[in-house]
Design a binder for these strands. Structure first.
Lengths: 249, 249
DNA sequence: CAAATTCCCGCACAAAAACGCAGAAACACG
DNA sequence: CGTGTTTCTGCGTTTTTGTGCGGGAATTTG
């Protein structure tokens, strides 16, 4: 059998079944696995397939992408993300909400990090999935089309039955009197559950949202352990919060 | 034998068998392999054939090398999607697996349709989310990075506790003896649960996958209610399946 | 963390290709 | 017709290509 012929066969199999094993291909066409591996390498270099340990995958399969629209005040969010990441260490169980700040954090996670991320936000999940070493747990339930996260009693029940090491909340509004507030009733339920189920609660918020509030109450400031903004921790704007016992980063 | 004559013979052989070996041609017409090689060179330069190490291939052969980022046999999948959609009506609860065929169906759903789609496939969920009127239920659990779907006991338990009107399975391999088979253990568990939880099971499969099988068994043919391919329902290839009591669309 | 796969690297060997050459046949032309 | 030229072919020799194998490194998995 000619080399090109063999490669065409392999390509065909990959496209047909989305996944092939070097071992089974080797058995199929009676050549050594080494040869198969070399074929897979070449096909991968030509961009026809994706080589993985033990075989290959079809390209069309892993091609899940999300319309990444313009992010508001990106650079600030990047700074927040960096600070948040410094709180994460290997082996942690981490609950996250949705929101563009969280997304930015997800994108910036260091590749060596091994941790478990739990979320109901579709966009966040997509980012986590691209990471080589982290385990991703998706919280299921009905999807809210507004917020692109799963909401509902199932999701809340699922969150309540876990105990995460840390919880990162993308915060919409935070205020000394009203605490944390938001404008989507379903999202609020979710966030409340996440706060209850985490040892440590970290709020990510751009400074613009500090001292603002929204119609629906999530929780008192006392439930929050840490607040991260793009400002330096000694910025006067944040003073009242650290006075209130919140660690400001 | 004249040179032109010889080359005509070679060209004929290539077009007939899609492939020729220099060695066998040399034996056929009793000339040295060197001569054959020179002929193949010339024919290749004229664009009549494709020269490869050890022989030559016909053009139709490498024409299978479709652009790398396109979905394999997209037009067939579109036809399958259309047929599948004709089974859906307003108010239904619909379970779907993942796979590019399912994805194609998700993209083609008519905008007025009001139904509830349930899936653990991230890619499918993204499509469903774009639809204005359908309700989306996401099945949660650990995400398998290979297959981009949620897998694990939680997901299976969740599926088992529902009763969907209809279930669309993107099928990897279907065969009269082996029934439905697949190559990913975790995916198989999921699909089994989906079959059990649906009143009606519909397999979507491009004709190429008919009468093929993979290592892991999902279920017997008897569990399947309907089979959809891109072929007309009276195609002889499908006859055995309709004889086996499966409705072929 | 230990066992089992899978991968990677270098090597050996065989098959095929490239190259140069030479002889034979075909051709051109005065 | 003779001679020079071109084309075609086959034969060594050298390179290149394709493949399998062994052993050690790396990765996966229980």
């Amino acid at each position: 059998m000619l080399k090109k012929e063999r490669q065409a066969y392999i390509l065909h199999q990959v496209n047909l079944h989305n996944k092939v094993l070097s071992s089974s291909l080797s058995a199929d066409i009676n050549v050594s696995e080494d040869t198969i591996r070399r074929d897979l390498m070449e096909l991968a270099e030509e961009g026809k397939i994706i080589k993985v340990h033990g075989g290959a995958l079809s390209h069309s399969f892993s091609q899940v992408h999300f319309p990444a629209n313009e992010v508001y005040s990106l650079s600030q969010k990047k700074r927040i993300a960096q600070k948040a990441i410094s709180l994460i260490s290997n082996g942690m169980f981490i609950l996250t909400s949705g929101g563009t700040t969280i997304l930015e954090m997800a994108r910036s996670l260091p590749p060596q990090l091994k941790a478990t991320f739990i979320s109901g936000s579709i966009a966040a999940i997509l980012e986590y999935m691209n990471h080589p070493n982290i385990e991703v747990i998706l919280i299921g339930d009905r999807i809210s089309k507004n917020s692109k996260i799963t909401v509902g009693p199932e999701a809340i029940a699922k969150i309540k039955q876990m105990k995460a090491d840390i919880c990162f909340l993308g915060t919409n509004a935070i205020d000394l009197h009203h605490g944390i507030t938001d404008n989507d009733w379903e999202v609020v339920q979710l966030k409340r559950a996440m706060i209850e189920s985490s040892q440590k609660v970290v709020c990510l918020s751009i400074a613009e949202k500090i001292n603002t509030f929204q119609p629906i109450h999530i929780c008192e400031l006392s439930k929050i352990d840490m607040l991260i903004t793009e400002l330096p921790s000694d910025d006067p704007l944040l003073k009242p919060y650290s006075d209130a016992g919140i660690k400001v980063l």
